[in-house]
Design a binder for these strands. Structure first.
Lengths: 151, 151
DNA sequence: TATTGTTATACTCTATAACTATA
DNA sequence: TATAGTTATAGAGTATAACAATA
């Protein structure tokens, strides 16, 4: 069981990386882009903390996303040290495409499974998650959660 | 679903690494040790190919295992370039302990699941594996299989 | 000339610690 | 003095390519 889970998990995340690659994104870029859209107008550090990404790594990721015109760094109204992250129109568009691709992958993973089989599997996985102590927080790829981990 | 699978797989393999760590093994060491026991008296390269581990990495892993007295490099009868890998008595003992620990982890993962729920989950995961194209070959941790991958 | 194992090297990735500008 | 973001740096990990012995 442990072997199957780890094998499947690795392959799932590998294929997800491939899919994102077709859109010019790495999983980390997608994760940050998604988090920035969800928690609109948060500080760069706040987003980094949320995903357990160290500050110096965040710089590189945000640099990339900003270079692609997908997000903007905006000044913080009251703290001139901080930067507010904001998804651009182009970022929203790409994120929508990325989500669509993710749905396609989702469908590919579950091909041949009926609706109740899928529900059954999800329920069993939820119990496994509890046993493993993974908190169902955060975003695609990588657990982040509460452990000292990163993207 | 994809997120859950990748999250669970990552955590499973992380915890497996922790468990192996208590025995002084990294997952890669366990994988090679296990493979050497299963495919007794194979060439170092043959084992490496089996696990998709590049030759130079194999050297380091086998160095470690030999340094711990868990396996031996023996001369090949007909090819003096090649080395035959052989599990020592001590290696067998440690491997048995490692397998026992793996069983404990297995039990921890499946706590609260009845026998038929476990079977159900395994069956569903097998179908997911097919959808993902993972061949159920190889050894614990990491997919290896046929893709250009490594430990 | 090709192949096994080894060594050396270059590359990527990541985190730690210094640095600046603000607070 | 502490903090947000940045930059520089060092460390680990991995693969690629050169190398020696043998086929």
């Amino acid at each position: 069981m442990g072997f199957a889970l780890s094998q499947i998990g690795l392959e799932t995340s590998r294929q997800f990386g491939e899919v994102m690659g077709t859109l010019g994104l790495e999983p980390r870029h997608f994760a940050v882009l998604h988090a920035v859209q969800r928690d609109e107008d948060q500080t760069q550090q706040a987003i980094g903390d949320l995903l357990a990404i160290p500050a110096s790594t965040m710089v590189a990721i945000v640099d990339h996303l900003e270079g692609e015109g997908l997000i903007e760094r905006r000044p913080h109204v009251s703290d001139r040290r901080a930067r507010i992250l904001h998804v651009t129109k182009r970022g929203e568009t790409l994120l929508a495409e990325a989500m669509a691709e993710a749905m396609v992958q989702e469908a590919r993973i579950c091909v041949g499974l009926g609706a109740n089989e899928r529900a059954q599997l999800l329920a069993l996985l939820a119990r496994i998650s509890l046993n493993l102590g993974v908190s169902s927080s955060a975003l695609p790829d990588r657990g982040s959660g509460n452990r000292p981990q990163t993207i």
